[in-house]
Simulated assay, not measured.
Amino acid sequence: MPASAPPALRDLKSLTDEQVSELFEDRIMERGIKYFEQGRILRPFVYRDSIMAECQGTLPENYYIRVDLRGGNMVASCTCPYALGYCKHIAAVLYGWLKKPGMFKDLGQSEDLLKKMDKGPLVETIIDMIKYDPDVVYVINLRLLPRPELPGFVEREMKNIFSEEFVDYLNVREIVKKLDIFREYASDIYQEGDIGTAMVVLRPVIEAIIDNYTNLDDTDGLMRNFFAAVMDLYGDIIPNYRMEGERRRFMNQALEWYMLAEWGLERVLRNFIRKETERLKEQKFMVNSVELRLADYKKSFITMGPKYSEEYEYVEERLERLEGLRADIKGHI
């Protein structure tokens, strides 16, 4: 599960045993240490201010863990379904980073080698990577496409990724893996300072998940947790817009998504809106936005069909959503 951690760090090398232990309940930390000692950490990498690894869990598939340092704060995520904070897989990776940093292959060294390669060998290397993992094509296209062409490309790829009418829980993991390439690219260009392009990449991902979530068997919560990580990034980007109107536009967009989301994603969005509204100090604005939508839904009762019809129940549920969100926001004014 994605989460934010309090330690302020200069770099990942300055992370201490004490700081890591403070992030976890004792039982979670103990399980993480056990996982590390059992050799469950696979493919560990470090690149600049990020560490990445896979961890063998209880399911046949591995979980993907990423730890980033953003502005002195550490942010970690895992694709496992644990929903109560940092999980044992993150604990295992961080413990491994503390006790055996040499096991993490430094991608910066590979970057230096690639920069020195001639075009021919470089192309051959890329083709070999694609043969090993076809999803590398997404990475290449995102990196090489001119940025004005990104909106159309991302929209098309979202349709391709969600082309199946129904996806069982085993294949949800593959979809999350593909989507994470787009999230990671959005994160990279955001950190480069191009917040506009980051949003261009990120918003179609959010909308595709909301539109298609009811067609997925997300029993173990992988997609829901990934969605929370995507919304965390969306929230990181918003404050960087200087104009108040732009920040409010993005928050109103989150409110629209909240009204569309189903099957638990609405809870992720409700938490997001409450948290980001408080961070941006926009409680009064968001209460007004919620109340405008409440008024619109109440007006729709005038022309609605019989009580207890599907239409009536839909509107009634949306009213409850809005009232609950309004109460959340007012509780933090």
Rank of each mutant, 00 (worst) to 15 (best):
D118C: 02
P121Q: 03
P121D: 03
P121E: 03
P121G: 07
P121S: 06
L122S: 07
L122F: 15
L122H: 10
L122T: 01
E124D: 15
T125S: 14
I127W: 10
I130Q: 01
I130D: 00
I130R: 03
K131G: 00
K131V: 10
Y132L: 14
D133I: 04
P134G: 02
P134F: 07
D135A: 12
D135G: 02
V137A: 10
V137L: 15
Y138M: 07
Y138S: 04
Y138G: 00
V139P: 00
N141H: 11
N141K: 13
N141S: 11
L142H: 04
L145I: 14
P146M: 07
P146G: 05
R147W: 08
P148N: 08
P148W: 07
E149P: 00
E149Y: 14
L150A: 03
L150C: 04
P151W: 06
G152D: 13
G152S: 14
V154C: 07
E155M: 12
E155A: 15
R156K: 15
E157D: 09
E157F: 07
M158P: 05
K159N: 09
I161P: 00
E164V: 05
E164N: 10
E164I: 01
F166L: 10
F166S: 11
V167R: 00
D168P: 09
D168R: 08
N171L: 12
V172C: 10
E174W: 13
E174N: 15
E174I: 08
I175E: 00
V176W: 01
K177Y: 14
K177H: 13
L179K: 04
D180Y: 11
D180F: 11
I181D: 02
I181C: 06
F182H: 00
F182I: 09
F182V: 07
F182P: 03
R183Q: 11
E184K: 13
Y185T: 11
A186P: 05
A186K: 06
A186N: 05
S187N: 11
S187K: 12
D188T: 12
D188K: 14
D188S: 12
Y190M: 11
Y190N: 06
Q191D: 12
Q191Y: 14
Q191V: 06
E192C: 06
G193C: 08
G193K: 09
D194L: 06
D194K: 04
D194Q: 05
D194V: 08
I195N: 05
I195R: 14
I195P: 01
T197P: 01
T197I: 14
T197Q: 12
A198E: 00
A198L: 08
V200A: 12
V200M: 09
V201G: 02
L202R: 03
L202D: 01
R203C: 07
R203P: 00
R203L: 15
P204N: 05
P204L: 09
P204C: 09
V205W: 01
E207L: 12
A208Y: 04
A208H: 06
I209R: 01
I210Y: 03
I210S: 06
I210Q: 04
Y213K: 03
Y213L: 04
N215T: 11
L216P: 01
L216F: 13
D217G: 06
D217C: 12
D220F: 15
L222K: 13
M223I: 11
N225V: 05
F227K: 06
F227S: 02
A229N: 13
A229G: 09
A229C: 06
A229M: 05
V230R: 01
M231Y: 14
D232C: 02
L233Q: 07
Y234T: 03
Y234Q: 01
Y234N: 03
Y234K: 06
